[in-house]
Amino acid sequence: MTPRTIAVVSAGLSQPSSTRLLADQLAAATARGLLAEPEIAVIELRERAHDIVNNLLTGFPSPALQHAIDQVLRADGLIAVTPLYSGSYNGLFKSFFDVLDPEVLAGKPLLIAATGGTARHSLALEHAIRPLFTYLRAATVPTAVFAATEDWGSAGSSGSALTSRIERAGSELAAAIEQRQPAVEADPYASATPFEQLLRNR
């Protein structure tokens, strides 16, 4: 059996970033819930920031950005983590999903998570981030994970609220991945409509 693949998109802008830290912990929790060890591809959007803007302007991705897009396309499950800026995902996070073809995430199991200064912002996951992926028709798991700065101080013990939330979200994503057939790439040419059919539809 070919191993399942998980793409991890992190939109953290500082290095090191707590967004990436959260993303890695979610990936590890998901891996623990899967029957076999998955392949994990981490996409740091910061490294593709110029390419993403260029794609917005020119309409095509650079080879490096295409590679990242392909990783998302081929993944059996996706983990998307953003820092909260002005009450929502940051612009880089949104821009990356803006340059994907609209069908790319349809039906794909997805875990969403965010980092922020205080827990006051945690519902941004529900009113800003979840609707984005509803629009893209991703199969977003019920538990979304928010990590405030203070959560990192209380983490470590297995009983902390953040840790148990990460475990729950990871096992939800793992279950969704296990229930799903491995991802296959759509081939627009294999499914192209013959011309007689296009003409008959007139």
């Binding site: 020119t58 309409g59 095509f60 080879p63 192209a192 409509t193 013959p194 011309f195 007689e196 296009l198 003409l199």
Partner: peptide, 18 residues
């Protein structure tokens, strides 16, 4: 597909694309 059906030419203006 349309160009092929009629045996017409197909022009790929790939100047802004890889």
């Amino acid at each position: 597909e349309q160009a092929a059906f009629y045996g017409d030419g197909f022009f790929a203006n790939h100047i802004f694309w890889p």
